[in-house]
Design a protein around this nucleic acid. Structure first.
Lengths: 160, 160
DNA sequence: GCTTGCCTTCCAGCGCGCTTGAATCTCTAG
DNA sequence: CTAGAGATTCAAGCGCGCTGGAAGGCAAGC
């Protein structure tokens, strides 16, 4: 088990709001990928974009530094996240939440920017990621059973 | 997302063997907790114990340093993992695999060593952990759907 | 004009969970 | 007797993904 830095976005995202399980995840789920973000809407500031996808603004700067999203700048040098940038951010944060590493995400985005000829490799990356998610789901299901089993043994001794 | 070090055991465990998804997890699943480990069997060396639970030997030393398992020593100072130690190791590695942090695990084990009066708090820890696992399962299910959706969009353009 | 607040860049530091290296000791086989 | 594999301790280092601080620019309200 290498350092679970990948778990942390999840933890932070979920630790916040009132409904720790639903808020961000559900909000993101509402946007069915390339739908639901109005292309004509005014671009967002970094603070607005951060709020929108549920991560801190410095994380967006970090993602930009990693080459994952490169928003335009206004005349003062401020970032302006347009609809395309927001769609990509939604994708990125979802993939991070799925446990995809920054390394793979960098590779994937680099391919996206290279054009349609890279679609086969992109598909392969997503296939692999899908398999990892499925494997992880199996692990977690087993872990859930184990935990529930243990809880039941304690429930057999409710006096403590 | 803070560093996901918690993902690393999982990754390492699953990256190894021939059947990357099944081997260790299934082996561990076979041991239904406090069953299936022969109390009368000879104690294991650190290398054997490591192999048994599917982690490197240094990790077992690390766990010991963290107070999670304290095997007896033979006359030469070598560790001897007895049945109880092995059962605990199985528990520990499963809980790590479920995403439980070292911090919580330290707390939990400390309570175990304090005796039966700590059972209510132990149960609470496991309840919380169960909730985290369930939440994570929901997230991953959503991420899986997103990934599969994306794959389908690529499959619509099989020429690349 | 000045304060307040959000923006900028750059770079260093952190938290987690191991992982590795160095130096040394012990057991087994030949 | 000796070589080699495997054990020990201690402390330092790593990889990942942010996170925070310093130093300063820009915009809006009083």
């Amino acid at each position: 088990m290498s350092p679970m830095a990948t778990d942390e976005l999840r933890d932070r995202v979920l630790a916040a709001g009132e409904d720790p399980a639903a808020s961000v995840v559900d909000a993101v789920h509402g946007l069915q990928d390339h739908a639901a973000i109005d292309a004509a809407a005014a671009p967002m500031s970094i603070a607005e974009a951060a709020e929108f996808v549920g991560v801190p603004a410095p994380t967006l700067r970090y993602y930009e530094q990693q080459g994952l999203v490169l928003p335009a700048r206004n005349s003062s040098g401020y970032r302006e996240y347009a609809a395309d940038d927001l769609r990509r951010l939604v994708f990125l944060t979802r993939m991070r939440l799925s446990g995809m590493t920054m390394r793979d995400l960098r590779r994937y985005i680099a391919l996206v920017e290279e054009g349609a000829s890279t679609i086969p490799e992109r598909r392969q990356i997503l296939h692999d990621q899908r398999d990892r998610i499925r494997r992880r789901l199996r692990e977690l299901t087993l872990a859930l059973e184990t935990t529930e089993y243990k809880i039941r043994t304690y429930d057999g001794h409710p006096e403590g």
